[in-house]
Design a protein around this nucleic acid. Sequence first.
DNA 1: ACTAGAATTTAGACATTCCTAATCATTCAA
DNA 2: TTGAATGATTAGGAATGTCTAAATTCTAGT
Lengths: 225, 225
Amino acid sequence: MKITEAMQNYLKTIYRLQERDGVVSTSSLAIAMSVAAPSATGMMKKLVRYRTVRYTRYQGVVLTKTGRQIALEVIRHHRLLELYLAASLGYSWDAVHEEAERLEHVISEDFEERVFEALGRPTRDPHGEPIPTREGALPVWNHDSLADLEPGASGTIRQVRDSSPDMLRYLGARGLVPDAVIRVVDKAPFNGPLTVNVGASTHALGRDLARHIRVEMRPMLGEQE
Amino acid sequence: MKITEAMQNYLKTIYRLQERDGVVSTSSLAIAMSVAAPSATGMMKKLVRYRTVRYTRYQGVVLTKTGRQIALEVIRHHRLLELYLAASLGYSWDAVHEEAERLEHVISEDFEERVFEALGRPTRDPHGEPIPTREGALPVWNHDSLADLEPGASGTIRQVRDSSPDMLRYLGARGLVPDAVIRVVDKAPFNGPLTVNVGASTHALGRDLARHIRVEMRPMLGEQE
DNA sequence: ACTAGAATTTAGACATTCCTAATCATTCAA
DNA sequence: TTGAATGATTAGGAATGTCTAAATTCTAGT
């Protein structure tokens, strides 16, 4: 009766998909885990035995409180590690994900605590994602998708939601990182690209890409109360 | 065709036992790995297929060059991690072993390299054990066992070979750590205790325990050339 | 309402790594 | 030298997590 590493990974993935889609289907889970569908079905049944998910045949799964707790614990490890690797060992923000992915399952609570303190009890990882607390609470902000901003709007990048190293390097090279201040110059119709100012330079960004960038809008002049 | 974590652990353990006893028997390996004897036999056969050990039925195993290479790589990870945990995250020397034991199999070569550089290319871990080089070379010193020193002899502790946290705490509390300068005051016959000066204080030490402490003797006055 | 196609689950298999029970080999002592 | 104790191996089986192929269930379009 032990939560294995595989189970942790499934729970973490279910959590992520559930945030996005609500109920999680077998096929989406299988794709996200890079396994065949029967593997996902089998694991769902196992997770049920551990009371970490609620599962109805042909209907998909939802995390229980216990399952969410475990997922958030793993996510906390992951994000603390990403931050630690970047801050203390000089990793670039596009390289932290892969290393954290393997370390997150093996570090002790003691290690977690020491890293947390060494980093000054941080609340966000290098990609701007919030770090769950030890108690499993996760502050949720509702920032706007960059893709939704209209020309003229400006704000501060709060999150860059993409774990592909190539994409992160691409964005980083253009200054599109958390805390960067941006302004939308132009926006093509029909899901076409956005043109944005970042600091001194201007870049065109695909709408799909922009959707992964979350922005805290600066209240327009005259809009403040 | 992949070296699994279990195989790494067996190879590391075979390396350690081989240093001590020469050829490694199934039973000693099984005991050291905390598994039943048939598990050890089975793994030996598997390690043969990977050309990491030479094995003769009923005779035990010896590492091949490849096997030793892999064992030393894992040991390098282990000792770098021990040092890093102690130096950068404030772990006590009795706590580093357990954490390093789990991390050693999952860190990347990149992580290893960054830690190595962050620590200033160290050559010894917190217990005084030498850290194998990236090429798999291991400097071997032949220090004396504290148990062999005669009354009046003195020297510097170079290694404390014990991974039990309790024992390390016990020794640490008495100042018996690497680089400590000690002098043997008295030595009981028949495998009885040694009495040693460590800094300002004096302690009696069981001979078995003293055997795990390796000392670089200071040449006696008048003995220098 | 029916049916074709998509999604999902079941069935059966394989690789790992571990176990217990039983058999086989070695060795040491009388 | 022989035989009992010790040590090692074989035989057979369990748990995990994966797969492919086949059967089942669902869903949408007519």
